[in-house]
Every structure is written in C-alpha cells, then in structure tokens.
C-alpha cells in the first residue's frame, strides 16, 4: 500500500484521544502506512470562513500543499468536519482559477504551492477503497456476530454531495457495508443522516442537545446495541454529552457510541485498551 498522509484533526489529538489511538492501532494491524505530518494545522472547522473566506481557504491550501510537498497523493482524516473543510477548500481551488492564483500567491509567502494533486479521504472510505468489504472481512478475527450497530453518519461525510461525492448523500451505505463486513448487523434508523447539533453548541446548547437526544432515541428504538460514527464531534455530543442530550428529550438510558476505528479494531481482535475504549464516557462492554 502506498503511504498516505494522516490528518487526525484537533479532536483526535485532544478530547477524542481514543479516536487517534484506535486509528493508529487499526492502521498498524492492517499494514496501512499512515504518516502524520507534524506541520498540519487545524482546518478551522469552517469557523475561519466566518473570519474571512480566503483565510479559511489559504490555511487549508497550506495543509494540502504540505502533503503535496512531502510527496503524498492522499490525505486521510478521521474527522468529518476536517474532511468537509479540506475537501471544500480543494473543490473551490480546483474550480476557480483566479482564487487559486490568489491563494498560491499567499502560499508563496511560506514557500508553498498548491498544485491540486492530492486527494482527501475519510478513513472509512479509505478502508473500503483499499480493502473492500471482502478484504476487510478476511482480516476479521473476532466477528461481531449478533451485535446490532446503528450507523450514524451525521452531516459532513455526506453533505453536500457536490463536495463530498463519495456516495449518494440521500442513501449512503459505506457505514452499513463496514458494519456488515465486521460481522455485525446494521440497524439503520431514520435519523442516521440527521445533524447532532454540535456546531451550534455554543450559541444554542439546548437545541444542540435536543438534536443529539433525538438521534440517540432513534438508535435505541431501532434496537441498537451501540452507535458507530465517523465523526469525533458527533461522538462528543452522542457520548460525552449523552446524559444531557437524553435529558433534553425526556429520556433516560445509555447506549455506547464507538468511533469507526474502534469498531473495526474490535473485530480485528485488537485489545480494547489499544483502541482507547476505556476513554469512552458511556462504558463499552466488550
């Protein structure tokens, strides 16, 4: 396998350390040559667009250009919002020659150039593209038989299709495919594509919690044993804020929420500690 640039994003380096740990463990197990670039900066989570549009694009063009400079063809990230922000910057730069020229002038200040050669993928897309469901299934040592998993996409791996484009935003199947390959049973509910409200948490904590609460409720009513999500930000709301979210919708129960690499890691037979499962707020019994 060709080496890929690993863009963990700030959450995986901080509040979602277990995501970082599990990604690294899974990559090791599967022999994926992930190389983390120490120069990568925060993508700004889209918030930089609120400071100035070209700032957002320039900061992310720098990230893309760094990967290109180091000879990578692919950047792999484990955060949905990083995925969206990086891909959006790329999408805009690849379709707007004038802006690209302007941004490259800015990058020149730092001795960099964006050439438009690097791709940005989510980790779970990468798994499907490189190994496929069959390849993944072959590597499974402890099939998750009998486990009912609610695949929760949230927003930024699917929408907008124009920018993400990996699968139909209205009917994505990538998570279901992974869950199945691991031997578990996907139980897809109607809120799997709904928002968790994370990005309005600061201005509107109550609304944010209601949305997360509704999503949790849906997972429960589908009979799920756990939720899996490709996004550490969704994870924070679903897991760390689970009590508050359920309270906001008048419910009381608990349901474990796993990052994609945590679920994959379990099926690969990696020990829970290496997957950081002990860090999940809602306990995961495995």
């Amino acid at each position: 396998m060709e080496k890929v640039a690993f863009y963990p994003g700030c959450a995986a380096k901080g509040a979602s350390k277990e995501l970082y740990e599990s990604t690294v463990a899974v990559a090791q197990e599967l022999g994926i040559p992930l190389v983390e670039l120490p120069q990568f900066s925060c993508c700004g989570a889209g918030v930089l667009e609120e400071v100035k549009e070209v700032l957002d694009i320039a900061v992310n063009a720098r990230n893309l250009a760094l990967a290109e400079r180091e000879g990578f063809k692919t950047i792999v990230t484990v955060c949905s919002t990083c995925l969206l922000v990086l891909r959006k910057a790329k999408h805009i730069l690849d379709n707007d020659d004038e802006l690209r020229e302007k941004v490259n002038k800015i990058l020149a200040e730092a001795g960099l150039e964006y050439r438009g050669e690097v791709e940005v993928k989510h980790f779970h897309w990468y798994l499907l593209d490189e190994l496929g469901e069959d390849g993944l299934r072959e590597r499974v040592k402890k099939p998750l038989s009998g486990l009912k998993v609610y695949p929760y996409y949230g927003c930024h791996t699917v929408r907008p299709y124009e920018v993400l484009g990996y699968e139909p935003s209205e009917n994505p199947r990538s998570l279901e495919r992974i869950v199945k390959a691991l031997g578990a049973e996907p139980v897809s509910g109607e809120r799997r594509l709904e928002c968790c409200g994370f990005h309005a948490f600061w201005p509107n904590p109550k609304g944010s919690m209601v949305l997360t609460g509704l999503n949790l409720k849906d997972a429960k009513s589908c009979g799920a044993d756990c939720i899996v999500t490709p996004c550490p930000l969704c994870h924070m709301n679903l897991d760390a804020n689970q009590d508050r979210a359920l309270k906001a919708v008048g419910e009381r129960f608990s349901i474990p929420v796993l990052h994609v690499p945590q679920l994959v890691g379990l099926a690969l037979g990696i020990e829970p500690k290496r997957l950081g499962l002990h860090r999940n707020i809602v306990p995961v019994n495995c």
């Binding site: 670039l37 400071v51 100035k52 070209v54 700032l55 320039a58 200040e109 730092a110």
Partner: peptide, 18 residues
C-alpha cells in the same frame, strides 16, 4: 506549536491582508 508554525502565521497574515 505545530512544525513550521511560522509559515502558517505568514499564510494567515497574508490572507488577512489580501
């Protein structure tokens, strides 16, 4: 700070000025 943080700062400053 990240590696090559100084070039990030340059990029941000230039972007704010453009």
């Amino acid at each position: 700070p990240i590696a090559e943080h100084e070039n990030l700062v340059k990029v941000m400053k230039a972007a704010m000025e453009v």
